[in-house]
Amino acid sequence: MNPRAARIGRRPRWWSELLLIAVVYAAYSGGRLLVRGDTQTAVDHGLAILRIEKLLYLNAEHPLNRLFTATPALGIPADFAYASLHYLVTPAVLVWLFHRRPARYRAARTWLMTSTLLGLVGFTLLPTCPPRLLDASHGFVDTMAQFSSYGWWGAEASAPRGMGAMTNQYAAMPSLHVGWALWCGVMLWRYGRTPASKALGAAYPLLTVIVVMGTANHYFLDAVAGAAVMGFGLLLTAPATRLVDRIRDRLRPVVGGGRSPLVSGGCETSAGERFPGQRSSPSSADDTPAPAR
């Protein structure tokens, strides 16, 4: 069997996958903190996005934000969804793929990780102030601050109270809330076998787009950029997988020509010499049969 085909069809070790995902997520979270830019630059970028949206009649954030602000029955669940589903649904889909679709898992995981790292590049190149942090004169209300008494978050993004310094609030472009939700939706639609799973796959990304705009955490163009990042990540999945395989093959000890490795580590004995404790072979030409007893 082709070694690459064997790797694709084999389920990875769960502990190595857990370690890999933890390392990538730690790098992503740490990278978000390290790329904090100038606040005024982030505000300027946010206002520029808002102007472009108004010019193109894409400004859906204002009506949604007003609706969520005036209707706690919508705003509070939306805040809970923004603060939690991002970190619950994505790992759940990864675990589901690992157990139910092992042949598809590796490519799906590589797609997600590659896209996430591309998102980090976006945060670096274009720090962006979310709508909720713009001056109140621009007409946005931070629903998570307004309804913070109902959840674990405070007035600083979706981080737990007192931990706002642990997140970069100016990493709005692209929206990986939308990007990860799109990835989950594609996985559920493509590999789910029931109508309910396919319906969830279609609804989850759309619901996420509405939530991130209604809570004033992202602009519509942030959501578009999140989808674009996932598209680029998908294109890079196959090359990234081949690169990892190539590196892994080079690091693996080479056994030439398909021969079995020498147990002696390359040391050889001279004719008639035996390793200590080695039994004589009756078929050997140099050995004489033992006398019968």
Rank of each mutant, 00 (worst) to 15 (best):
P102L: 09
A70E: 15
F98A: 07
R106H: 09
A78P: 03
H86G: 04
T69C: 01
L112G: 06
T69N: 06
L112V: 08
P72M: 04
A83L: 07
L94V: 14
A83D: 10
W111Y: 05
A83R: 12
A81W: 00
M113D: 08
A70R: 15
L55R: 15
D79F: 00
Y82P: 01
I52S: 14
R66C: 04
L112A: 14
F98C: 06
L85N: 10
A70H: 15
P72I: 10
P91G: 03
T69Y: 00
L85R: 05
A107D: 11
A81N: 05
M113S: 10
T114N: 07
L55G: 12
F80Q: 02
R104S: 12
A103G: 14
Y105R: 07
P91L: 06
V93R: 12
L88C: 08
E61G: 09
A78G: 07
P77E: 10
R109W: 13
L56S: 06
R106E: 03
A60N: 14
L64N: 02
A73Y: 00
L64I: 02
T110S: 07
N59T: 03
K54W: 11
R106L: 05
Y87C: 05
A70W: 03
A107N: 05
R66M: 07
W96Q: 06
R100Y: 11
P102W: 12
T90Y: 15
A108H: 08
L94C: 14
I76K: 00
F68Y: 08
Y82V: 04
A83H: 09
A92T: 13
L112T: 07
L88S: 06
R100G: 06
A78N: 07
R66G: 02
L58Q: 13
F80M: 04
H86F: 15
Y105S: 11
Y82F: 14
A60G: 14
P63H: 09
R109T: 12
N65H: 01
A92F: 04
A83I: 08
P102C: 11
A70D: 15
V93F: 14
A108T: 02
T110C: 08
K54S: 10
A78Y: 02
P77S: 12
A92V: 03
F98K: 02
W111Q: 03
P102M: 07
A107E: 11
L56I: 04
P63G: 10
N65T: 00
T71V: 14
P102Y: 09
V89K: 08
A73Q: 06
L112K: 01
L74H: 01
L112Q: 04
L85P: 08
A70P: 04
I76E: 00
T90L: 11
A81F: 12
T69R: 05
L67D: 02
R109S: 13
R104A: 10
Y87E: 09
R100M: 08
L64P: 00
P91M: 07
N65D: 01
A107Y: 08
A81C: 09
D79A: 06
